[in-house]
Nucleic acid binder design. Structure first.
Length: 263
DNA sequence: ATGGTCGTTTCACGA
């Protein structure tokens, strides 16, 4: 079973690449972030023709997420317990969707960006991550043997080596102790980074800004992760970051991250 | 400190 996560940066502008990607990489389950499409705007036809089902959470089209699967799509949940909204009245932000696919619980997560460390969005990011940790800890207790994957764009670089030049992030989000602590709290709740053992750093990234030829110079960030419960982790036999998908024109600014599970 | 490039709710703003 092959599971991928990808911040696609608009599924409508990228749908041809999405269809080509799942075919080329033989993907069974694909978690997407930043779909930028409401549910009624989702271009599902081509994927359905390829044998996939699509579940999306796109009420807020900027932050939309989705799970695409050809091995079943059951028990779909949009959001997690106590997931905070933003603003007043609270925005119904579609940053999380979970589904059981072929016996594996897959979550597609789009962690709030945070904008700046003194921005209200930054504090919202930390609240959101705290609620995610609590929900994820409860899942471990209620179903300790279930393979669960928390995949997506975490908008956090857990280690200094996960950004191209840590000295340039002195006043930036993604690397603050609070954000890294929030990421670590999810790990401590029982979810391991299953990709890093197969793709050790440094200079192993999943995101490169569009401008200043950041990809061509490999000046990127490692912010997209697959965290797995113990039952998930022990089935992982390989993982890769599809840099080829980031190359050339018309790509997302993120590369897909792929994990292969034993049957 | 600034700007660069994308995508969209586009001549503005978020990432």
């Amino acid at each position: 079973m092959r599971i991928a996560t990808w911040n696609v940066n608009s599924v409508r502008s990228r749908i041809a690449r999405v269809e080509a990607f799942v075919a080329r990489q033989d993907i069974d389950v694909l978690a997407l972030q930043e779909t930028k499409a409401r549910d009624d705007q989702w271009p599902t036809m081509g994927l359905e023709a390829l044998g996939y089902e699509v579940a999306s959470a796109g009420h807020d089209q900027w932050n939309g997420v989705a799970v695409v699967s050809r091995v079943g799509l059951e028990d779909v949940e949009r959001g997690f317990p106590d997931m905070p909204g933003y603003g007043e009245p609270p925005a119904s932000e579609a940053r999380a969707i979970g589904a059981t696919c072929g016996g594996v619980r897959v979550w597609s997560l789009y962690v709030p960006n945070g904008r700046k460390p003194d921005d209200p969005h930054y504090h919202y990011k930390l609240r959101w991550l705290s609620a995610l940790r609590d929900a994820a800890a409860a899942w471990r207790e209620s179903a300790p043997d279930l393979p669960v994957a928390l995949t997506g764009d975490w908008n956090i670089a857990p280690l200094d080596e996960d950004v191209f030049d840590i000295t340039r992030f002195a006043h930036s989000t993604h690397v603050t102790p609070a954000e890294r602590g929030a990421f670590e709290a999810v790990v401590e709740a029982g979810y391991a980074d299953v990709v890093r053992p197969f793709q050790p750093g440094p200079e192993v990234y999943t995101y490169w800004d569009y401008y200043r030829q950041r990809f061509e110079r490999n000046r990127g960030m490692r912010i997209d992760f697959v965290l797995g419960s113990p039952a998930f982790e022990k089935r992982v036999v390989g993982a890769e970051i599809d840099r080829e998908e980031r190359a050339g024109t018309g790509s997302s600014d993120h590369a897909p991250v792929i994990v292969e599970l034993s049957d």
